[in-house]
Design a protein around this nucleic acid. Structure first.
Lengths: 199, 199
DNA sequence: CGGAACTTTGAGTTTCCTCAAAAAATGTGG
DNA sequence: CCACATTTTTTGAGGAAACTCAAAGTTCCG
């Protein structure tokens, strides 16, 4: 599944199963991953509200979506105040995650950033009900493009986390061995999530 | 005006006049500015919906706010679908700005980042109706904390933009002399804003 | 006028990057 | 199951970007 930037029929959808990610690119190809999309996430609201999507979305695993029609959104707000409150709740949750990510990319060191990201994804997966799999299905290139680092430096940084026994990398995926250790390295207290609406 | 992180009576407000900014800090004091708040902006939605504010807000100039009560939000969604749509529109606009900022901090060089930020603020000021003043009331420390750079390197970077005749720095503020030049340095096409709701 | 905040400069260091290439894992077709 | 192409991970070396430390100018404000 790939939905690309500038695409005019901006889609609004929720992820039912699978992993995906949102990203933007500069004209010369530099790519920044903005956030990851897990089951229960609402993706593309901005595009739906504003008219053009200005980021792209790509799947990491086979993914099942529930697609909404853009023009249903006005109707939703008119007739379903509870649901539209939930939509806004999810939007504000996404914004909170972006705030955290921006803090991380702007102010944390490479090692702290990597630890933060993997802890973040670990807890998101858990929160999305993917309890069984501690496997985060991303390549080191994805990590690099999320953290704003080169692939080489990312590799050397992840290696340190591996050597510290915090993670293990295999099969194009990261296995988190010690979530608390990651939190400590990152200087983070973990997610402060309470109960959330499902759409 | 300062509202601080973790404050429990999370506030929701719109800026009526003045400049402010949202930021987060790490425990050792490193600060990341997340976005700037100009007249017409809705600030603190996430806090209002989720219960605790997890960023702080500080004023750059004397600022007038219109504060909403948090518990009015449910009522708003129930009885004013048009307005609640607008609230969500503004939330998605904020998210779009964060996406851009994250791309910038993650993937642009120091010079590109600085140019992007100043162009971004220039167009935001214009969009907020502050047409007269090309003055952006921030110190170089604010720029550094927005771009994720040190104050020293920020100074040297801004100096290059000054020497290129793109900006002028005086009175703890930046004057934009050549917006198009900034866009070119940043490799950006400027804002794609259409009409927006006022709350 | 004096103190504080802000801007500027220089020097040396660290972090991260690019280039290049090898090693390992993965996927495909026979 | 094997041979081969592709993608991903790993390593080394040298260079560029950004950082810290330190200090001197400047501007602002009471």
């Amino acid at each position: 599944m790939i939905l690309s930037e500038g695409s005019h029929s901006a889609q609004l959808f929720t992820v039912l199963s699978g992993w995906a990610f949102r990203f933007k690119t500069l004209e010369d190809g530099r790519r920044q991953i903005l956030n990851f999309c897990l089951p229960g996430d609402l993706v593309g609201l901005q595009g739906s509200i504003i008219g053009v999507m200005d980021h792209s979305v790509e799947a990491l695993t086979p993914t099942v979506l529930c697609v909404f029609q853009r023009d249903q959104l006005g109707e939703l707000f008119k007739n379903h105040p509870g649901l539209s409150f939930d939509v806004t709740w999810l939007a504000s949750r996404e914004e909170r995650m972006l705030d955290e990510n921006l803090l991380s990319v702007g102010r944390r060191s490479a090692l702290e950033r990597a630890a933060y990201l993997l802890a973040f994804l670990f807890y998101r997966a858990r929160g999305a009900g993917l309890i069984g799999s501690k496997r985060i299905p991303i390549t080191q290139q994805h990590v690099a493009d999320t953290l704003g680092l080169s692939i080489v430096h990312t590799n050397k940084t992840l290696r340190k986390l591996s050597e510290g026994g915090l993670i293990r990398w295999h099969d194009r995926a990261c296995e988190v061995l010690d979530p608390d250790g990651l939190l400590k390295v990152a200087g983070w207290h973990g997610p402060t999530e309470s109960k959330r609406p499902l759409i």
